[in-house]
């Protein structure tokens, strides 16, 4: 989900936190924070805190070697030069092993203070992905306007304008289809359509996405994982 936004990432491993990643794209506009709790894994063991510097394109090449149904075991030594990846099918009569070179990555780490949030929107992840993709064809900027009874996505481009308005509703049968708006104060913020399209690459990871918006501040887009999260912080655009 994140390899088009960032190329090199440090994966921090610890027994208590599981795997955490913070990465910022080269333009310093999009920050990615990933947390995969230890409980997400069938087995997780980390005797000593470890930083694995990975080239995501290379990691992706290795991960594609396995079949979906296979078990994947990732292993690294105490002061590793390589990450080992072992795929095994259920009957353990096919085993494939790969080793991926690790890198020393010197990356910025930003401190994100707890933010006051003006509004929180939860909507189906596929719905947000469709809006982000469709609106990008109209404009390189997407404005999100939230009031207590609607969230409006608005694009103004060369060929014309477009908007999608969603109203809050609760779907009792399929809660993940609901649209929820929690509002402390109304917000209107504009974001780069390109970055929103990078963010929605996480769509398959979660049925819903939660968007937290605060006036004149970066937005938080959160995809909850079964045990952990993938968060994107996106700096807004301002009227020039």
């Amino acid at each position: 989900s994140i390899k088009d936004s960032v190329k090199l990432c440090n994966f921090n491993c610890s027994q208590s936190q599981g795997i955490t990643v913070q990465a910022i794209d080269d333009s310093r506009v999009l920050l990615i924070a990933l947390k995969i709790d230890a409980g997400s894994f069938q087995e997780f063991r980390c005797d000593k805190d470890l930083v694995l510097g990975l080239d995501l394109e290379s990691l992706s090449k290795i991960l594609k070697q396995g079949n979906n149904e296979e078990y994947l075991t990732l292993m690294a030594e105490d002061s590793p030069d390589n990450l080992m990846a072992v795929f095994e099918d259920k009957k353990k009569d096919r085993i494939s092993e790969f080793s991926l070179k690790l890198m020393d990555i010197d990356s910025d780490v930003l401190t994100i203070d707890d933010m006051e949030t003006d509004c929180t929107i939860t909507l189906p992840a596929y719905e947000f992905a469709k809006i982000a993709k469709d609106m990008k064809t109209l404009s390189e900027s997407l404005k999100i306007v939230v009031t207590k009874d609607s969230v409006k996505f608005n694009a103004e481009g060369q060929i014309g304008t477009g908007s999608v308005i969603l109203k809050p509703h609760t779907d009792m049968d399929k809660p993940e289809e609901s649209v929820k708006i929690e509002l402390n104060s109304p917000v209107a913020l504009t974001f780069g359509a390109k970055y929103l399209n990078d963010i929605v690459k996480a769509t398959s990871l979660s049925s819903t996405v939660t968007i937290k918006l605060t006036d004149k501040s970066p937005a938080l887009f959160e995809y909850k994982l079964p045990s952990g999260y993938l968060r994107y912080y996106l700096a807004p655009k301002f009227d020039d």
Partner: peptide, 14 residues
Amino acid sequence: KYKQSSLLSFFTNS
């Protein structure tokens, strides 16, 4: 007509 802001103007480097 819009100017893209940077995360560095909101978050501190640690």
